[in-house]
Write a protein that binds this DNA or RNA. Structure first.
Length: 258
DNA sequence: ATGGCTGAGCTACTCAGA
């Protein structure tokens, strides 16, 4: 089973690129972030033509997450955590895989910049609330998959120039500690688990030729609960969509489980 | 180098992203 996580930066502006990708990669499940549209304007019919059902937690202009799947998803939940600002940042659902019931958790973590504002506090509070809830979920189901745009640079190797980001909301130690706290509940960062030293990125800024210079960062992650580690077949950052005309600033990360 | 570029909503410009 092939599962993809991709911050598409507007599902409607990106639809042609997304369809090109789907035809080539043929994933079973897509976890989208930053769809930037309300539920009623989501392109359900277009995905349906390619045999995908869409489960959407949208928002006007900003944020928004969706699960787009060829496989039946049950128990869709859009209220896993309490969000004071009522932003659409998390959608979960259950999928049967072999003898396991896997809970898919698709997240778009707040950016948190600038750090001396309430935006940073919102990110910290969001993560604290998220970790508390994941701990509870884990006690009920040991098969969890958390994927999405975490807006966290886990380690120095995960960005082209760490010094530029050590005081940024994506790289601050306080935030990276939250990520470690999450891992310590019983998860592996699948990319780093498989690739111990490799330096690859999932995001490149639109500004000043960041893509051409490979000034990127690894902020989109697949976390698998330890119970599912034996099912990993492969993990891949697919850079092709970032190289296209009118790309998202993020590129898809692909997980295959067996 | 708080710049650079892109999308939504809207129709001039702000807000947000990372």
């Amino acid at each position: 089973m092939k599962i993809v996580s991709w911050n598409v930066n507007s599902v409607r502006a990106r639809i042609e690129n997304i369809l090109d990708y789907i035809k080539e990669a043929n994933p079973d499940i897509l976890l989208f972030q930053e769809i930037k549209t309300q539920d009623e304007n989501f392109p359900y019919d277009i995905f349906k033509k390619y045999n995908y059902d869409s489960y959407v937690f949208g928002q006007k202009s900003y944020n928004g997450v969706a699960i787009v799947s060829k496989i039946k998803i049950k128990n869709i939940n859009k209220n896993l955590i309490k969000d004071n600002l009522k932003q659409s940042r998390i959608i979960t659902g259950e999928v049967k895989f072999k003898n396991k019931k896997i809970e898919l958790i698709n997240i778009y973590v707040p950016n948190g910049n600038p750090v001396d504002t309430e935006k940073y506090e919102y990110k910290k509070n969001w993560l604290t609330s998220f970790i508390r809830n994941i701990k509870k979920r884990l006690s009920e189901n040991s098969n969890l998959l958390i994927a999405g745009d975490y807006n966290i640079i886990p380690e120095e190797i995960d960005v082209y120039d760490f010094k530029k980001y050590e005081n940024d909301a994506l790289g601050k130690l306080e935030i990276r500690k939250k990520y470690r706290e999450l891992l310590n509940l019983g998860f592996k960062d699948v990319y780093r688990f498989i690739n111990k030293k490799k330096q690859e990125y999932t995001f490149w800024d639109y500004f000043s030729g960041s893509w051409q210079k490979n000034y990127g960062m690894r902020i989109d992650h697949f976390l698998l609960s330890n119970n599912l580690i034996e099912n990993i077949s492969s993990i891949n950052i697919n850079k092709k969509p970032r190289s296209k005309i009118k790309p998202s600033d993020h590129t898809p990360i692909e997980l295959e489980i067996r």
